[in-house]
């Protein structure tokens, strides 16, 4: 409860529990012994989109350098959304998770971005290089050299 990174995570958690934003819910069961370095957030697909009513689970891992260093964010659990920027191992191709990260972003902002990314999808399909990527990638998506080329989805 003393490092700046933990203080900030505590503040974010408090505000998300106090005023839960639509479509996201922090699963506090994972944070045993007040370990704030791993979060699980339940996402609900937005109404009127391809993912309406579906539930997903996001895993956040924070390094001690958070918020200067971006969190490691992956989908986890049984239901990985079928989306052109989401690989079947849960890795997400989203620029704010690496290059465009800013310390003013938060768990809530990242969740909102991901819900928005899902919402703008017009087709439920995996990325074209899914099979190859999943076979060859590192466990940590931040070690992937992502190539952000598709702004439409």
């Amino acid at each position: 409860m003393s490092t700046p990174s933990e203080r900030r995570l505590q503040k974010e958690l408090m505000s998300m529990l106090k005023e839960p934003p639509t479509g996201m819910e922090v699963d506090t069961a994972v944070m045993e012994h007040n370990d704030l370095h791993t979060w699980h957030v339940r996402l609900t697909g937005a109404a009127g989109t391809l993912y309406e009513g579906e539930n997903f689970k996001l895993q956040f891992k924070f390094s001690p350098k958070y918020p200067f260093d971006s969190p490691e964010v992956t989908f986890t659990g049984d239901n990985i959304p079928l989306h052109p920027h989401v690989y079947s191992n849960g890795h997400i191709c989203l620029s704010i998770l690496t290059d465009d990260w800013s310390p003013a972003l938060s768990v809530q902002a990242v969740c909102l971005s991901i819900i928005s990314m899902l919402s703008s999808s017009k087709e439920k399909k995996r990325p074209p290089d899914d099979a190859l990527y999943v076979k060859t990638c590192s466990k940590n998506p931040k070690k992937t050299k992502w190539w952000y080329h598709d702004d439409t989805v």
Partner: peptide
């Protein structure tokens, strides 16, 4: 893109 929308909403 999505990030900017979040800041805009705040």
């Amino acid at each position: 893109m999505a990030s900017s929308s979040s800041t805009a909403s705040t």
